[in-house]
Write a protein that binds this DNA or RNA. Sequence first.
DNA 1: GGGCTTTTGCAAATGATTTGCAATATCAGT
DNA 2: ACTGATATTGCAAATCATTTGCAAAAGCCC
Lengths: 136, 136
Amino acid sequence: MEKQKLAIPKGYRKTRQREAILKVLEQAEYPINAEQIFMELRNRGIDISLSTVYRNLEMLTKEGLVVKSYMMNEDKARFALPDKKNYLVCEKCGKIVIIDNCPFDKFKEELIEVHGFEITGHSIEVYGVCPECQKK
Amino acid sequence: MEKQKLAIPKGYRKTRQREAILKVLEQAEYPINAEQIFMELRNRGIDISLSTVYRNLEMLTKEGLVVKSYMMNEDKARFALPDKKNYLVCEKCGKIVIIDNCPFDKFKEELIEVHGFEITGHSIEVYGVCPECQKK
DNA sequence: GGGCTTTTGCAAATGATTTGCAATATCAGT
DNA sequence: ACTGATATTGCAAATCATTTGCAAAAGCCC
Ligand SMILES: [Mn+2]
Ligand SMILES: [Mn+2]
Ligand SMILES: [Zn+2]
Ligand SMILES: [Zn+2]
């Protein structure tokens, strides 16, 4: 099956700003924060305000198109498309690497069985030292 | 081996406030935020200021005695002893259940092999609906 | 107990995120 | 294409969790 094109949810209007935010998130390699999205849009010549970025991120998150997360020692939220929500972070240089084949699915069954929860989502953050930083 | 008693790290002074914060965290069943710790201390008759709570949480986190985390749709940090850092959250009622046998360890090896990271820590948050809320 | 350093409390500052409001844009229905 | 109803935006101001400066109080080694 094809990687399906990201569409603005039913009931919401298609605006220049909204589409541009989604495009930035599609092209991002890992979760980024509101300010970064804002600046990237400015670089691309998109006229937008920071509050519009925040308002759209809130709605996209609520609709499940985007996943919000927090990184250790940062007090800003980051946002990413769902396929980039699990990652490794280097404690030394801050490098972020996406975990592609999410290990979590294999444990879903076990968690359901043990706790009786119906599971709707998860997020995994792993800290460590990247190969480059290990050499130093 | 015994569950070792939580001690204030070498080089730091033993204060009434610091010990009380640690005790609250020891007795907590899941991660709680600074304000909750503050109010619990007040309830227990401990005279303390909110900034002292924050300052101690920062130092305890830096020293690794405490783990900081963020929950979805909350903009406050939560703190817990390391054994309570992975949890399930009910999207309906907010109930939090600790994941005792952390599934992550089984994937550590695979992550190390695939990404070359030296892994120092992780945090897992799982969202879902608890058994009680499913009945409704 | 004395002296030296850390810790605390309080009030003020910070900084990310949210919100009120008036202006603008989108879109469904004509 | 035009219009009205409604959603969205920009800007400035408000929020609120967290941090910080500073002077007073406490802990610790001798
Ligand atoms: Mn996963
Ligand atoms: Mn904040
Ligand atoms: Zn690195
Ligand atoms: Zn529930």
